Amino acid sequence: MRIAFFGSSLVSAYWNGAATYYRGVLRALAGRGHEVTFYEPDAYERQAHRDIPDPPWARVVIYQPREPDALRCLEEAARADLVVKASGVGVLDALLEREALRLRRAGGLVAFWDVDAPATLERLRADADDPFRPLVPRYDLVFTYGGGPPVVEAYLGLGARRCVPIYNALDPDTHHPAPAEPRFAADLSFLGNRLPDREARVREFFLRAAAALPGRRFLLGGAGWGDLALPANVRWLGHVYTREHNALNCSALAVLNVSRESMARFGHSPATRVFEAAGAGACLVSDAWVGMERFLEPGREVLLAESGAEVAEALGGLTPARAAAIGAAARRRVLAEHTYAHRALEVEAALGLRPGAGAAA
C-alpha cells in the first residue's frame, strides 16, 4: 500500500511531541512492505533542529508553508492508496483537512489521524461552527493517538464512520537501556515541553514534589521552561534531543510522566515518554488516569500518584533495587505487548488488510 502522510514533522522532535510516534508507526508499516511518503512543512525552526536525517524507510517531502506548495503536495499524494491528514500540522491545517478529502477515489482511502484527540474534541464541542466538524463524517476512518472508549464515542457522535485508537508504543531499536551519564544524574527527571494545559500539572506533580524533598535532585527537560522560577534542587536542561532520551531515562532513580490536563481527563492516553522510559528499563512514576492498567500494572510495572505529595512519598520510599525491579518489569511488558510492530498490525486490521498484504503496488 502506498501511504501519503501529512504531519507536523518526521525528522524533527523540536516542539513536536508526535515525532517519536510517527517514526514508530510508519517505520513499522514500512517494514511490513508499505511505501511511505511523509509531507511536512518547513516551519517552527524544526528543520534547524533535526533529530534524524531522512530515514531509509520513508520518503520525506518538505514544503514551504504556503498554499500553492501544499496543494502541489496534495496533487502528488493523489496517487497513494491511503492519504492521511494528521492533526496539528501547525500550518494550513484547515486547507489540508478540506482538500485531502478531494483525493478520495475508488480503491483508495482518506483518513484523519488525530494525535491530540482530547484537544480536538474539546475544541469542536466549544465551537459548533468549527470548519472541521462537517468534515468528520466524510473521512473513511479516524485514527487516534489514544483516548480509548471516550474518544471513540465522541468521534462516532460527530458522525465518524469509524474511529480506531492506535496507542503510543515502543520502538526497541530506538529506545532501550543505555549507560547512565553524570550530567543527567537525578532522583527524578521529567521531560516535556511547556504547554498551557500541562503547566499546572507539572507544577503540582513535579515542582511541588521537588519543594517537598529539598535534599533530592530533580531534572526538568523540554522547551519553554526558561523563565519559570524553579526550586533550588531543580535543574532545567532545555530541549533534549531524541538521541539523548535513553541516557536521560537511565540516569535517574525514577522518571516522571505528567499527562496534559485534557489527556488525563479522557484517560487511556499514555504519552510517548511512558514507553520510552519503560523501554529503557527506567522506573516510571506517573500521574494516575483511567486506563493505565491496560499498558502497565500499577505497583509492579509503574508507580501511580494522585498529587505532588504522593510523588514525593513514592520517591522518598524508593530504593535503587525496587526501582530496578519496576523498570525491568515494565520493559518486559512493553516488549511483549506494546511495540510499534504490534501497532502496525492494528493499523492493517483497521484498514482491512490481510497479514502480509503490505507490499506496494
Rank of each mutant, 00 (worst) to 15 (best):
R322C: 02
R322A: 12
A323N: 04
A323C: 10
A324T: 06
A325P: 02
A325E: 14
I326G: 00
G327P: 07
G327R: 02
A328D: 10
A328T: 11
A328I: 06
A328Q: 13
A329F: 00
A330D: 06
A330N: 05
A330T: 08
A330K: 01
R331T: 08
R331N: 07
R331V: 10
R331M: 09
R331L: 09
R332S: 09
R333A: 14
R333G: 02
R333S: 12
V334I: 07
V334C: 05
L335A: 04
L335G: 01
L335R: 08
A336W: 01
E337I: 00
E337K: 14
E337H: 15
E337V: 07
E337A: 15
H338I: 12
H338E: 10
H338F: 15
H338C: 09
H338Y: 11
T339E: 08
T339P: 04
Y340S: 00
A341H: 11
A341N: 04
H342Y: 05
H342K: 04
H342G: 07
R343C: 13
A344M: 09
A344H: 05
L345V: 14
L345D: 13
E346D: 15
V347A: 04
V347P: 06
E348F: 15
E348C: 15
A349R: 15
A349V: 03
A349F: 01
A349N: 04
A349M: 02
L351Q: 11
L351N: 07
L351C: 10
G352N: 08
G352K: 09
G352W: 11
L353K: 06
L353C: 10
L353N: 08
R354F: 02
R354T: 08
P355N: 14
P355E: 13
P355F: 12
G356S: 12
G356D: 12
G356H: 11
G356W: 11
A357G: 13
A357S: 13
A357N: 03
A357M: 04
G358P: 02
G358W: 06
A359C: 06
A359I: 09
A360P: 02
